[in-house]
């Protein structure tokens, strides 16, 4: 969509130096055409970013349409980074802001790596789109950028944090999908980002695609009970941004994935049950919750009966079934 523009094409095919030379020539000898191409809807953000000094030199800023003007203002403020806050980077029009940021990220991230300031702007736009606008449609661009940066050994921690901050367990699926990548660096990064999931930990040593299949079974089994913890790479060595609530799985009640209070028992008997459940060791909790959820799906009546038994009896029956996945 953004690649047909002459300036975009020059950047993609001949690099940034040639882009600057070509644009300089155009601005000098055909100012009207230069403005027309700059204001073309298909212009990429990365192209505009690289041309900002020339736009200044040839005093073209006032001839730009609003999207480009706002993008240049955003760049100036973000690069100076003096006591800035999101609200000072954006205009009062929330809808226009959203469109602007989405264009900056989606058309800009294709040339990620132009320089540190540009990459930082990509990080900031991603964060605002995710944290403020809760825009799921930008997740693929963010994931693509994270993996591209890792391949080049560039800084990607803030973007990885942004991705997790979307607070949706489905992003685990997007990460796991890259276990099937032909690029070993992609596979390694996926393993790192979801290494804390029991299905990945217990299947280490298997090829990526086998791990992906194991992940899918695990995900299908646990999806309703996965919640966001808020843990990050800044906080600890092995963060676990997403966890399964075994309490919720035991009671067969889906969690609120994006909330600190992801799960709350609804009645006194459930509270009592969970108190006893909480005293069990981790393996027994997993065993019981797995058995509970399977029985619930197979036969709700039998599940109700089983749940009325004392915890010891529940454990005895669940343990007797055997063959339950260790997560």
């Amino acid at each position: 969509m953004y690649s047909e523009n002459y300036l975009n094409r020059t950047l993609q095919e001949e690099g940034s130096s040639q882009l600057l030379l070509s644009f300089e020539k155009l601005a000098k000898f055909n100012r009207r055409k230069a403005v027309e191409i700059l204001n073309d809807e298909s212009l990429n953000f990365s192209t505009l970013y690289l041309l900002r000094s020339k736009i200044k030199k040839y005093r073209l800023a006032s001839t730009l349409h609003n999207r480009n003007k706002n993008a240049l203002t955003f760049i100036d403020k973000a690069v100076s980074k003096k006591n800035i806050k999101t609200k000072y980077l954006l205009t009062a029009n929330s809808l226009k802001n959203h469109g602007l940021l989405k264009w900056m990220l989606e058309s800009g991230s294709r040339q990620d790596g132009l320089d540190d300031a540009f990459d930082e702007i990509i990080d900031i736009t991603s964060l605002i789109l995710v944290k403020q606008f809760k825009d799921k449609s930008v997740i693929p661009a963010i994931i693509r950028t994270i993996y591209n940066r890792r391949r080049k050994g560039m800084f990607m921690q803030d973007l990885a944090w942004t991705l997790f901050e979307y607070k949706d367990p489905d992003i685990l699926k997007d990460i796991a999908f890259r276990l099937c990548s032909a690029d070993p660096k992609d596979v390694k990064l996926s393993r790192e980002l979801i290494s804390y999931l029991p299905c990945i930990r217990l299947s280490s040593g298997l090829p990526g695609f086998s791990q992906y299949n194991i992940f899918l079974s695990w995900f299908e089994e646990n999806r309703p009970f996965i919640y966001y913890t808020g843990e990050s790479f800044q906080q600890k060595a092995n963060p676990m941004p997403y966890k399964v609530s075994y309490e919720a799985k035991y009671l067969c009640k889906p969690v609120y994935a994006d909330s600190d209070k992801h799960f709350k028992p609804s009645a006194k008997p459930e509270e009592e049950l969970l108190k006893s459940f909480g005293k069990l060791d981790a393996n027994s909790q997993i065993l019981l919750s797995n058995y509970s959820y399977r029985l619930f799906r197979q036969n709700p009546y039998a599940w109700n009966t089983w749940r009325s038994y004392p915890l010891g009896e529940q454990t005895r029956i669940a343990g007797g079934m055997g063959g339950i996945m260790p997560w």
Binding site: T86, I124, I128, T162, S232, Q234
Partner: peptide, 10 residues
């Protein structure tokens, strides 16, 4: 934390 300053997430 403000998205502009992720370094202050904690």
């Amino acid at each position: 934390v403000d998205p502009v300053t992720p370094e202050w997430q904690g």
